[in-house]
Nucleic acid binder design. Structure first.
Lengths: 247, 247
DNA sequence: TTAGTTAGCGTATTTTTGACGTTAACTTTG
DNA sequence: CAAAGTTAACGTCAAAAATACGCTAACTAA
Protein backbone atom coordinates (compact mmCIF):
# COMPACT_ATOMS: atom_id res chain seq x y z
CA UNK A 1 0.00 0.00 0.00
CA UNK A 2 1.37 3.38 -0.92
CA UNK A 3 1.74 6.01 1.73
CA UNK A 4 0.05 9.31 1.06
CA UNK A 5 1.65 12.52 2.13
CA UNK A 6 0.73 16.01 1.27
CA UNK A 7 4.01 16.73 -0.40
CA UNK A 8 3.67 13.83 -2.79
CA UNK A 9 0.16 14.48 -4.03
CA UNK A 10 -0.62 15.39 -7.61
CA UNK A 11 -2.20 18.76 -8.18
CA UNK A 12 -5.87 18.69 -9.08
CA UNK A 13 -7.50 20.77 -11.75
CA UNK A 14 -10.75 21.02 -13.65
CA UNK A 15 -10.99 21.44 -17.41
CA UNK A 16 -14.16 22.46 -19.20
CA UNK A 17 -15.17 21.44 -22.68
CA UNK A 18 -17.62 24.23 -23.35
CA UNK A 19 -19.81 23.50 -26.33
CA UNK A 20 -21.71 26.13 -28.21
CA UNK A 21 -23.53 26.36 -31.50
CA UNK A 22 -23.31 29.00 -34.17
CA UNK A 23 -23.39 29.25 -37.96
CA UNK A 24 -24.68 25.66 -38.01
CA UNK A 25 -21.54 24.33 -36.40
CA UNK A 26 -20.81 22.73 -33.08
CA UNK A 27 -18.05 24.74 -31.44
CA UNK A 28 -15.75 24.48 -28.48
CA UNK A 29 -14.37 27.37 -26.49
CA UNK A 30 -10.58 27.36 -26.59
CA UNK A 31 -7.99 29.66 -25.11
CA UNK A 32 -4.90 30.79 -26.91
CA UNK A 33 -1.63 29.96 -25.24
CA UNK A 34 1.65 31.69 -26.07
CA UNK A 35 4.96 30.02 -25.39
CA UNK A 36 8.57 30.03 -26.47
CA UNK A 37 9.65 26.81 -28.10
CA UNK A 38 13.09 25.16 -27.99
CA UNK A 39 14.40 27.22 -30.86
CA UNK A 40 13.45 30.34 -28.92
CA UNK A 41 10.64 31.21 -31.27
CA UNK A 42 7.43 32.68 -29.91
CA UNK A 43 4.67 30.25 -30.75
CA UNK A 44 0.99 29.67 -30.11
CA UNK A 45 -1.42 26.90 -29.54
CA UNK A 46 -4.69 26.37 -27.73
CA UNK A 47 -5.88 24.90 -24.47
CA UNK A 48 -9.15 24.23 -22.73
CA UNK A 49 -10.40 26.67 -20.14
CA UNK A 50 -9.53 25.17 -16.79
CA UNK A 51 -8.05 25.93 -13.43
CA UNK A 52 -6.45 24.36 -10.42
CA UNK A 53 -8.78 23.84 -7.53
CA UNK A 54 -8.07 25.31 -4.17
CA UNK A 55 -7.80 23.06 -1.16
CA UNK A 56 -11.37 23.58 0.01
CA UNK A 57 -13.08 23.97 -3.29
CA UNK A 58 -15.66 21.49 -4.49
CA UNK A 59 -14.83 20.05 -7.92
CA UNK A 60 -18.23 20.85 -9.41
CA UNK A 61 -18.08 24.38 -8.04
CA UNK A 62 -14.59 24.84 -9.46
CA UNK A 63 -15.97 23.89 -12.85
CA UNK A 64 -18.88 26.33 -12.46
CA UNK A 65 -16.47 29.02 -11.42
CA UNK A 66 -14.21 28.45 -14.42
CA UNK A 67 -17.25 28.46 -16.67
CA UNK A 68 -18.57 31.70 -15.21
CA UNK A 69 -15.18 33.39 -15.44
CA UNK A 70 -14.91 32.39 -19.08
CA UNK A 71 -18.42 33.10 -20.29
CA UNK A 72 -20.02 35.26 -17.63
CA UNK A 73 -22.83 32.72 -17.42
CA UNK A 74 -24.23 31.04 -14.33
CA UNK A 75 -26.58 28.12 -13.71
CA UNK A 76 -25.44 26.34 -16.81
CA UNK A 77 -25.75 22.69 -17.71
CA UNK A 78 -22.49 21.15 -16.56
CA UNK A 79 -21.51 17.51 -16.41
CA UNK A 80 -18.43 15.78 -15.13
CA UNK A 81 -17.58 13.06 -17.60
CA UNK A 82 -14.12 11.73 -16.81
CA UNK A 83 -10.87 12.13 -14.95
CA UNK A 84 -7.60 12.23 -16.76
CA UNK A 85 -4.87 10.97 -14.55
CA UNK A 86 -2.01 9.51 -16.54
CA UNK A 87 1.27 10.29 -14.81
CA UNK A 88 2.76 11.48 -18.09
CA UNK A 89 -0.08 13.82 -19.03
CA UNK A 90 2.40 16.62 -18.62
CA UNK A 91 5.59 15.43 -20.19
CA UNK A 92 5.94 17.73 -23.14
CA UNK A 93 8.74 20.25 -22.36
CA UNK A 94 6.63 23.10 -23.70
CA UNK A 95 3.78 22.20 -21.34
CA UNK A 96 6.10 21.83 -18.36
CA UNK A 97 7.79 25.14 -19.07
CA UNK A 98 4.46 26.87 -19.51
CA UNK A 99 3.16 25.52 -16.20
CA UNK A 100 6.27 26.71 -14.41
CA UNK A 101 5.95 30.17 -15.92
CA UNK A 102 2.25 30.67 -15.25
CA UNK A 103 2.14 29.19 -11.74
CA UNK A 104 5.65 29.84 -10.54
CA UNK A 105 5.68 26.35 -9.09
CA UNK A 106 7.31 23.11 -10.12
CA UNK A 107 4.31 20.91 -10.64
CA UNK A 108 5.11 17.22 -10.87
CA UNK A 109 1.76 15.94 -11.95
CA UNK A 110 -1.77 17.15 -12.52
CA UNK A 111 -4.90 15.05 -12.32
CA UNK A 112 -7.80 16.79 -13.96
CA UNK A 113 -11.54 16.33 -13.70
CA UNK A 114 -13.14 17.00 -17.07
CA UNK A 115 -16.54 18.62 -17.45
CA UNK A 116 -18.57 19.48 -20.46
CA UNK A 117 -21.12 22.22 -20.60
CA UNK A 118 -23.54 23.56 -23.14
CA UNK A 119 -24.14 27.22 -23.60
CA UNK A 120 -25.99 29.54 -25.86
CA UNK A 121 -23.20 31.52 -27.49
CA UNK A 122 -25.48 34.48 -28.07
CA UNK A 123 -25.85 35.08 -24.36
CA UNK A 124 -22.12 34.94 -23.69
CA UNK A 125 -20.84 38.24 -22.41
CA UNK A 126 -17.57 38.55 -20.58
CA UNK A 127 -14.33 40.42 -20.47
CA UNK A 128 -12.43 37.45 -19.17
CA UNK A 129 -12.79 35.46 -22.35
CA UNK A 130 -11.73 38.40 -24.48
CA UNK A 131 -8.74 39.17 -22.25
CA UNK A 132 -7.64 35.55 -22.44
CA UNK A 133 -8.20 35.51 -26.20
CA UNK A 134 -10.72 32.76 -26.05
CA UNK A 135 -12.42 31.77 -29.25
CA UNK A 136 -15.09 29.47 -30.51
CA UNK A 137 -13.58 26.76 -32.69
CA UNK A 138 -15.48 24.35 -34.88
CA UNK A 139 -15.12 20.85 -33.41
CA UNK A 140 -14.26 19.60 -36.86
CA UNK A 141 -11.30 21.98 -37.10
CA UNK A 142 -9.59 21.57 -33.77
CA UNK A 143 -6.00 22.89 -33.95
CA UNK A 144 -3.02 21.59 -32.01
CA UNK A 145 -3.78 21.60 -28.33
CA UNK A 146 -1.81 21.69 -25.09
CA UNK A 147 -1.43 18.67 -22.79
CA UNK A 148 -3.93 15.90 -23.53
CA UNK A 149 -6.67 18.39 -24.24
CA UNK A 150 -7.41 16.87 -27.63
CA UNK A 151 -8.28 13.59 -25.89
CA UNK A 152 -10.45 15.41 -23.40
CA UNK A 153 -12.44 17.09 -26.14
CA UNK A 154 -12.85 13.82 -27.98
CA UNK A 155 -14.17 12.06 -24.90
CA UNK A 156 -16.38 15.01 -24.10
CA UNK A 157 -17.90 14.95 -27.54
CA UNK A 158 -18.59 11.22 -27.31
CA UNK A 159 -20.30 11.79 -24.01
CA UNK A 160 -22.30 14.70 -25.37
CA UNK A 161 -23.52 12.54 -28.25
CA UNK A 162 -24.58 9.83 -25.82
CA UNK A 163 -26.40 12.24 -23.55
CA UNK A 164 -28.20 13.90 -26.44
CA UNK A 165 -29.85 10.59 -27.27
CA UNK A 166 -31.31 10.19 -23.83
CA UNK A 167 -31.82 13.67 -22.46
CA UNK A 168 -33.18 16.90 -23.90
CA UNK A 169 -29.99 18.90 -23.55
CA UNK A 170 -29.72 20.41 -27.01
CA UNK A 171 -31.94 23.30 -25.96
CA UNK A 172 -29.18 24.58 -23.73
CA UNK A 173 -27.34 25.70 -26.84
CA UNK A 174 -30.26 27.41 -28.53
CA UNK A 175 -31.95 30.72 -27.82
CA UNK A 176 -35.22 30.79 -25.92
CA UNK A 177 -37.22 30.60 -29.14
CA UNK A 178 -36.24 28.24 -31.92
CA UNK A 179 -37.76 26.36 -34.80
CA UNK A 180 -37.83 22.60 -35.25
CA UNK A 181 -35.35 23.04 -38.04
CA UNK A 182 -32.94 24.91 -35.76
CA UNK A 183 -33.13 21.97 -33.43
CA UNK A 184 -32.57 19.47 -36.21
CA UNK A 185 -29.51 21.27 -37.51
CA UNK A 186 -28.13 21.30 -33.98
CA UNK A 187 -28.73 17.56 -33.62
CA UNK A 188 -27.07 16.94 -36.95
CA UNK A 189 -24.05 18.97 -35.95
CA UNK A 190 -23.65 17.16 -32.65
CA UNK A 191 -24.32 13.67 -33.92
CA UNK A 192 -22.40 14.35 -37.12
CA UNK A 193 -25.02 12.88 -39.42
CA UNK A 194 -28.01 13.95 -41.47
CA UNK A 195 -31.55 13.36 -40.32
CA UNK A 196 -34.77 13.15 -42.26
CA UNK A 197 -36.68 16.33 -41.44
CA UNK A 198 -40.11 14.67 -41.50
CA UNK A 199 -39.09 11.86 -39.19
CA UNK A 200 -37.16 14.15 -36.91
CA UNK A 201 -40.20 16.36 -36.52
CA UNK A 202 -42.45 13.40 -35.77
CA UNK A 203 -40.17 12.07 -33.07
CA UNK A 204 -39.19 15.25 -31.36
CA UNK A 205 -42.74 16.61 -31.29
CA UNK A 206 -43.84 13.65 -29.20
CA UNK A 207 -42.02 15.32 -26.33
CA UNK A 208 -44.51 17.16 -24.19
CA UNK A 209 -41.85 19.63 -23.08
CA UNK A 210 -41.66 21.20 -26.54
CA UNK A 211 -44.18 24.03 -26.50
CA UNK A 212 -45.34 25.70 -29.70
CA UNK A 213 -45.50 29.48 -29.54
CA UNK A 214 -47.97 31.63 -31.46
CA UNK A 215 -45.10 33.50 -33.04
CA UNK A 216 -43.78 32.57 -36.47
CA UNK A 217 -40.65 33.33 -38.40
CA UNK A 218 -40.73 36.47 -40.52
CA UNK A 219 -38.73 37.53 -43.52
CA UNK A 220 -37.68 34.05 -44.56
CA UNK A 221 -37.85 33.03 -48.18
CA UNK A 222 -40.13 30.09 -47.52
CA UNK A 223 -43.15 29.09 -45.46
CA UNK A 224 -42.49 30.57 -42.03
CA UNK A 225 -41.97 28.08 -39.25
CA UNK A 226 -43.50 28.18 -35.81
CA UNK A 227 -41.26 28.99 -32.91
CA UNK A 228 -41.05 26.58 -30.03
CA UNK A 229 -39.62 26.78 -26.55
CA UNK A 230 -38.34 24.15 -24.15
CA UNK A 231 -40.45 23.90 -21.01
CA UNK A 232 -38.14 22.76 -18.24
CA UNK A 233 -41.00 22.41 -15.79
CA UNK A 234 -42.93 19.99 -17.97
CA UNK A 235 -39.74 18.07 -18.63
CA UNK A 236 -39.01 17.62 -14.93
CA UNK A 237 -42.58 16.48 -14.40
CA UNK A 238 -42.54 13.83 -17.11
CA UNK A 239 -38.90 12.87 -16.81
CA UNK A 240 -39.62 9.19 -16.53
CA UNK A 241 -41.74 9.08 -19.68
CA UNK A 242 -39.15 10.62 -21.90
CA UNK A 243 -36.41 8.08 -22.23
CA UNK A 244 -34.70 9.28 -25.31
CA UNK A 245 -34.52 8.90 -29.03
CA UNK A 246 -32.78 6.47 -31.30
CA UNK A 247 -31.69 8.53 -34.21
CA UNK B 1 -7.15 32.05 -10.01
CA UNK B 2 -6.12 29.86 -7.13
CA UNK B 3 -2.50 29.04 -6.62
CA UNK B 4 -1.54 25.39 -6.55
CA UNK B 5 1.19 24.20 -4.28
CA UNK B 6 2.18 20.72 -3.42
CA UNK B 7 1.46 21.18 0.24
CA UNK B 8 -2.07 22.30 -0.36
CA UNK B 9 -3.18 19.54 -2.68
CA UNK B 10 -5.87 17.06 -1.77
CA UNK B 11 -4.82 13.44 -1.58
CA UNK B 12 -6.01 11.26 -4.43
CA UNK B 13 -7.42 7.79 -4.07
CA UNK B 14 -9.27 5.19 -6.08
CA UNK B 15 -12.29 3.29 -4.84
CA UNK B 16 -13.63 0.18 -6.50
CA UNK B 17 -17.24 -0.90 -6.58
CA UNK B 18 -16.67 -4.56 -7.30
CA UNK B 19 -19.83 -6.29 -8.44
CA UNK B 20 -20.32 -10.01 -8.34
CA UNK B 21 -23.21 -12.40 -8.64
CA UNK B 22 -24.15 -15.33 -6.45
CA UNK B 23 -27.31 -17.02 -5.17
CA UNK B 24 -29.26 -15.00 -7.69
CA UNK B 25 -28.24 -11.71 -6.12
CA UNK B 26 -26.10 -8.84 -7.29
CA UNK B 27 -23.41 -8.29 -4.69
CA UNK B 28 -20.74 -5.76 -3.86
CA UNK B 29 -17.43 -6.49 -2.22
CA UNK B 30 -17.13 -4.56 1.04
CA UNK B 31 -14.42 -4.42 3.65
CA UNK B 32 -15.09 -4.39 7.34
CA UNK B 33 -13.73 -1.42 9.22
CA UNK B 34 -13.22 -1.37 12.98
CA UNK B 35 -13.12 1.89 14.87
CA UNK B 36 -13.68 3.31 18.31
CA UNK B 37 -16.57 5.71 18.50
CA UNK B 38 -16.93 8.79 20.71
CA UNK B 39 -18.23 6.79 23.65
CA UNK B 40 -15.11 4.66 23.46
CA UNK B 41 -16.99 1.63 22.21
CA UNK B 42 -15.41 -0.64 19.58
CA UNK B 43 -17.64 -0.51 16.55
CA UNK B 44 -17.76 -1.73 12.97
CA UNK B 45 -18.94 -0.62 9.62
CA UNK B 46 -18.01 -1.20 6.00
CA UNK B 47 -16.08 0.57 3.30
CA UNK B 48 -15.27 0.06 -0.34
CA UNK B 49 -11.93 -1.45 -1.31
CA UNK B 50 -9.73 1.44 -2.31
CA UNK B 51 -6.31 2.92 -1.90
CA UNK B 52 -4.34 6.11 -2.21
CA UNK B 53 -2.37 6.44 -5.39
CA UNK B 54 1.31 7.02 -5.35
CA UNK B 55 2.76 10.06 -7.05
CA UNK B 56 3.66 8.29 -10.28
CA UNK B 57 0.86 5.80 -10.46
CA UNK B 58 -1.71 5.89 -13.21
CA UNK B 59 -5.27 6.07 -11.90
CA UNK B 60 -6.48 3.13 -13.95
CA UNK B 61 -3.51 1.06 -12.88
CA UNK B 62 -4.11 1.96 -9.25
CA UNK B 63 -7.65 0.64 -9.64
CA UNK B 64 -6.38 -2.58 -11.27
CA UNK B 65 -3.88 -2.99 -8.47
CA UNK B 66 -6.51 -2.55 -5.78
CA UNK B 67 -8.74 -5.00 -7.57
CA UNK B 68 -6.00 -7.58 -7.88
CA UNK B 69 -4.99 -7.18 -4.25
CA UNK B 70 -8.57 -7.70 -3.19
CA UNK B 71 -9.60 -10.52 -5.45
CA UNK B 72 -6.43 -11.99 -6.83
CA UNK B 73 -7.82 -11.44 -10.30
CA UNK B 74 -6.16 -9.68 -13.22
CA UNK B 75 -7.35 -8.44 -16.61
CA UNK B 76 -10.79 -7.71 -15.29
CA UNK B 77 -13.44 -5.44 -16.74
CA UNK B 78 -12.89 -2.10 -14.99
CA UNK B 79 -14.50 1.22 -15.68
CA UNK B 80 -13.97 4.64 -14.20
CA UNK B 81 -17.37 6.21 -13.74
CA UNK B 82 -17.00 9.32 -11.60
CA UNK B 83 -14.86 11.42 -9.32
CA UNK B 84 -16.04 12.32 -5.87
CA UNK B 85 -14.53 15.56 -4.77
CA UNK B 86 -16.67 17.34 -2.24
CA UNK B 87 -14.43 19.11 0.28
CA UNK B 88 -16.49 17.66 3.14
CA UNK B 89 -16.40 14.06 1.95
CA UNK B 90 -14.34 13.38 5.04
CA UNK B 91 -15.96 15.35 7.80
CA UNK B 92 -17.29 12.61 10.03
CA UNK B 93 -15.01 12.43 13.14
CA UNK B 94 -14.96 8.65 12.94
CA UNK B 95 -13.71 8.78 9.36
CA UNK B 96 -11.09 11.42 10.16
CA UNK B 97 -9.84 9.48 13.16
CA UNK B 98 -9.70 6.27 11.17
CA UNK B 99 -7.70 7.92 8.40
CA UNK B 100 -5.22 9.29 10.90
CA UNK B 101 -4.79 5.90 12.51
CA UNK B 102 -4.38 3.88 9.36
CA UNK B 103 -2.13 6.30 7.48
CA UNK B 104 -0.37 8.06 10.34
CA UNK B 105 -0.90 11.31 8.47
CA UNK B 106 -3.22 14.22 8.90
CA UNK B 107 -5.13 14.16 5.67
CA UNK B 108 -7.11 17.30 4.96
CA UNK B 109 -9.05 16.17 1.97
CA UNK B 110 -9.30 13.20 -0.38
CA UNK B 111 -10.52 13.30 -3.95
CA UNK B 112 -11.36 9.83 -5.17
CA UNK B 113 -11.76 8.35 -8.61
CA UNK B 114 -14.47 5.70 -8.56
CA UNK B 115 -14.32 2.56 -10.67
CA UNK B 116 -16.68 -0.31 -11.02
CA UNK B 117 -15.67 -3.79 -12.01
CA UNK B 118 -17.42 -7.05 -12.65
CA UNK B 119 -16.02 -10.32 -11.51
CA UNK B 120 -16.99 -13.93 -11.34
CA UNK B 121 -17.10 -14.61 -7.63
CA UNK B 122 -16.31 -18.26 -8.11
CA UNK B 123 -12.86 -17.47 -9.46
CA UNK B 124 -11.97 -15.15 -6.62
CA UNK B 125 -9.08 -16.48 -4.64
CA UNK B 126 -6.98 -14.35 -2.40
CA UNK B 127 -5.59 -14.06 1.08
CA UNK B 128 -5.81 -10.30 1.04
CA UNK B 129 -9.59 -10.25 0.98
CA UNK B 130 -9.80 -12.74 3.82
CA UNK B 131 -7.23 -10.90 5.89
CA UNK B 132 -9.12 -7.66 5.42
CA UNK B 133 -12.40 -9.40 6.19
CA UNK B 134 -13.95 -8.53 2.89
CA UNK B 135 -17.38 -9.91 2.17
CA UNK B 136 -19.90 -10.00 -0.60
CA UNK B 137 -22.98 -8.00 0.33
CA UNK B 138 -26.30 -7.98 -1.50
CA UNK B 139 -26.74 -4.56 -3.13
CA UNK B 140 -30.26 -4.48 -1.72
CA UNK B 141 -28.97 -4.87 1.83
CA UNK B 142 -26.13 -2.39 1.98
CA UNK B 143 -25.24 -1.61 5.62
CA UNK B 144 -23.92 1.68 6.97
CA UNK B 145 -20.83 2.70 5.07
CA UNK B 146 -17.79 4.87 5.67
CA UNK B 147 -17.29 8.25 4.00
CA UNK B 148 -19.60 8.80 1.02
CA UNK B 149 -19.26 5.20 -0.09
CA UNK B 150 -23.00 4.66 -0.16
CA UNK B 151 -23.24 7.41 -2.82
CA UNK B 152 -20.41 5.85 -4.75
CA UNK B 153 -22.13 2.47 -4.85
CA UNK B 154 -25.41 4.04 -5.90
CA UNK B 155 -23.78 5.89 -8.78
CA UNK B 156 -21.84 2.80 -9.73
CA UNK B 157 -24.98 0.73 -9.90
CA UNK B 158 -26.73 3.30 -12.05
CA UNK B 159 -23.78 3.25 -14.39
CA UNK B 160 -23.70 -0.54 -14.45
CA UNK B 161 -27.37 -0.65 -15.39
CA UNK B 162 -26.75 1.80 -18.22
CA UNK B 163 -23.77 -0.11 -19.54
CA UNK B 164 -25.59 -3.43 -19.41
CA UNK B 165 -28.14 -2.10 -21.89
CA UNK B 166 -25.52 -1.25 -24.45
CA UNK B 167 -22.64 -3.63 -23.93
CA UNK B 168 -22.38 -7.35 -23.26
CA UNK B 169 -20.77 -7.07 -19.84
CA UNK B 170 -22.97 -9.40 -17.84
CA UNK B 171 -20.81 -12.36 -18.87
CA UNK B 172 -17.99 -11.01 -16.77
CA UNK B 173 -19.91 -12.05 -13.70
CA UNK B 174 -20.80 -15.56 -14.86
CA UNK B 175 -18.67 -18.67 -15.14
CA UNK B 176 -17.31 -19.72 -18.52
CA UNK B 177 -20.38 -21.88 -19.18
CA UNK B 178 -23.84 -20.65 -18.38
CA UNK B 179 -27.43 -21.13 -19.46
CA UNK B 180 -29.72 -18.51 -20.94
CA UNK B 181 -31.67 -18.60 -17.71
CA UNK B 182 -28.54 -17.86 -15.69
CA UNK B 183 -28.02 -14.85 -17.88
CA UNK B 184 -31.62 -13.73 -17.51
CA UNK B 185 -31.53 -13.97 -13.73
CA UNK B 186 -28.35 -11.91 -13.77
CA UNK B 187 -29.98 -9.26 -15.95
CA UNK B 188 -32.99 -9.20 -13.68
CA UNK B 189 -30.81 -8.76 -10.61
CA UNK B 190 -28.84 -5.91 -12.13
CA UNK B 191 -31.76 -4.10 -13.72
CA UNK B 192 -33.99 -4.84 -10.75
CA UNK B 193 -36.96 -5.97 -12.80
CA UNK B 194 -38.49 -9.13 -14.20
CA UNK B 195 -38.13 -10.12 -17.82
CA UNK B 196 -40.20 -12.44 -19.97
CA UNK B 197 -38.08 -15.53 -20.51
CA UNK B 198 -39.28 -16.12 -24.07
CA UNK B 199 -38.62 -12.58 -25.19
CA UNK B 200 -35.32 -12.40 -23.36
CA UNK B 201 -34.18 -15.55 -25.10
CA UNK B 202 -35.22 -14.23 -28.50
CA UNK B 203 -33.35 -10.96 -28.05
CA UNK B 204 -30.19 -12.20 -26.47
CA UNK B 205 -29.78 -15.07 -28.91
CA UNK B 206 -29.60 -12.61 -31.78
CA UNK B 207 -26.11 -11.79 -30.53
CA UNK B 208 -23.58 -13.66 -32.57
CA UNK B 209 -21.14 -13.70 -29.67
CA UNK B 210 -23.30 -16.12 -27.70
CA UNK B 211 -22.07 -19.57 -28.66
CA UNK B 212 -24.08 -22.68 -27.85
CA UNK B 213 -22.05 -25.57 -26.46
CA UNK B 214 -22.83 -29.25 -26.97
CA UNK B 215 -23.01 -29.73 -23.24
CA UNK B 216 -26.28 -29.64 -21.34
CA UNK B 217 -27.26 -29.31 -17.72
CA UNK B 218 -27.49 -32.56 -15.74
CA UNK B 219 -29.35 -33.41 -12.56
CA UNK B 220 -31.88 -30.62 -12.83
CA UNK B 221 -35.54 -31.30 -12.12
CA UNK B 222 -36.65 -30.08 -15.53
CA UNK B 223 -35.70 -30.15 -19.17
CA UNK B 224 -31.93 -29.60 -19.16
CA UNK B 225 -30.76 -26.38 -20.74
CA UNK B 226 -27.91 -25.94 -23.17
CA UNK B 227 -24.80 -24.26 -21.94
CA UNK B 228 -23.52 -21.21 -23.77
CA UNK B 229 -20.33 -19.26 -23.65
CA UNK B 230 -19.46 -15.68 -24.48
CA UNK B 231 -17.09 -15.37 -27.42
CA UNK B 232 -15.05 -12.25 -26.90
CA UNK B 233 -13.38 -12.53 -30.28
CA UNK B 234 -16.66 -12.57 -32.17
CA UNK B 235 -17.89 -9.68 -30.06
CA UNK B 236 -14.86 -7.54 -30.87
CA UNK B 237 -15.31 -8.36 -34.54
CA UNK B 238 -18.96 -7.35 -34.69
CA UNK B 239 -18.84 -4.57 -32.12
CA UNK B 240 -20.50 -2.08 -34.37
CA UNK B 241 -23.47 -4.30 -35.17
CA UNK B 242 -24.41 -4.97 -31.59
CA UNK B 243 -25.69 -1.72 -30.23
CA UNK B 244 -27.61 -2.90 -27.26
CA UNK B 245 -30.99 -3.96 -26.05
CA UNK B 246 -34.00 -2.09 -24.81
CA UNK B 247 -35.36 -4.21 -22.03
C1' DT C 1 -47.60 -42.48 -12.57
C1' DT C 2 -48.33 -37.84 -11.68
C1' DA C 3 -47.15 -33.24 -10.51
C1' DG C 4 -43.94 -29.64 -10.86
C1' DT C 5 -40.42 -27.25 -13.20
C1' DT C 6 -37.85 -24.87 -16.86
C1' DA C 7 -36.37 -25.25 -21.97
C1' DG C 8 -37.22 -23.82 -26.15
C1' DC C 9 -40.14 -23.03 -29.95
C1' DG C 10 -43.89 -20.37 -31.96
C1' DT C 11 -47.85 -16.79 -32.99
C1' DA C 12 -50.38 -12.57 -32.97
C1' DT C 13 -50.70 -7.64 -31.92
C1' DT C 14 -48.96 -3.30 -31.27
C1' DT C 15 -45.27 0.16 -31.61
C1' DT C 16 -41.42 2.15 -33.65
C1' DT C 17 -38.57 3.10 -37.41
C1' DG C 18 -37.24 4.62 -41.90
C1' DA C 19 -38.11 5.95 -46.57
C1' DC C 20 -40.56 9.07 -49.11
C1' DG C 21 -44.94 11.75 -51.29
C1' DT C 22 -47.40 16.08 -51.18
C1' DT C 23 -49.30 20.62 -50.45
C1' DA C 24 -48.74 25.25 -48.12
C1' DA C 25 -46.59 29.62 -47.61
C1' DC C 26 -43.20 32.53 -48.06
C1' DT C 27 -39.21 35.33 -50.97
C1' DT C 28 -36.48 36.14 -54.90
C1' DT C 29 -35.68 36.54 -59.65
C1' DG C 30 -36.49 37.33 -64.54
C1' DC D 1 -46.52 39.25 -62.03
C1' DA D 2 -45.49 34.66 -63.05
C1' DA D 3 -42.18 31.22 -62.22
C1' DA D 4 -38.69 29.18 -59.49
C1' DG D 5 -36.71 28.04 -55.18
C1' DT D 6 -37.05 27.07 -50.43
C1' DT D 7 -38.60 25.03 -46.11
C1' DA D 8 -42.95 23.85 -43.16
C1' DA D 9 -45.92 20.61 -41.95
C1' DC D 10 -48.84 17.13 -42.84
C1' DG D 11 -49.49 12.20 -44.28
C1' DT D 12 -48.66 7.10 -46.21
C1' DC D 13 -46.63 2.60 -46.28
C1' DA D 14 -43.70 -1.23 -45.41
C1' DA D 15 -40.30 -3.29 -42.54
C1' DA D 16 -38.54 -4.12 -38.05
C1' DA D 17 -38.82 -4.40 -33.15
C1' DA D 18 -41.16 -4.89 -28.91
C1' DT D 19 -44.58 -7.19 -26.17
C1' DA D 20 -47.90 -10.47 -24.57
C1' DC D 21 -48.78 -15.02 -24.33
C1' DG D 22 -49.64 -20.34 -25.92
C1' DC D 23 -47.66 -24.70 -26.19
C1' DT D 24 -44.89 -29.00 -26.11
C1' DA D 25 -40.45 -31.26 -24.52
C1' DA D 26 -37.65 -33.20 -21.08
C1' DC D 27 -36.21 -33.76 -16.86
C1' DT D 28 -36.78 -34.88 -11.31
C1' DA D 29 -39.17 -35.72 -7.10
C1' DA D 30 -42.84 -37.64 -4.68
Amino acid sequence: MSIPGRNINPTISVDCVIFGFSTNQLKVLLIERSFTDRSGIESKDYKLPGDFISINEDLDLAASRTLEEMTGLRDIFLCQFAVFGKPDRISNPVDMEWLLETTGLEIQRVVTAAYYSLINIGETNTDFAIKNSASWIDVKQIPKLAFDHADIIEQGLIRLQLSLRSEPIGFEMLPEKFTIRDLQILYEAILDCTLDNRNFRKKILKSSYLVQLDEKQTGVAHKPAHYYRFDRYIYEKHKKESLGFNF
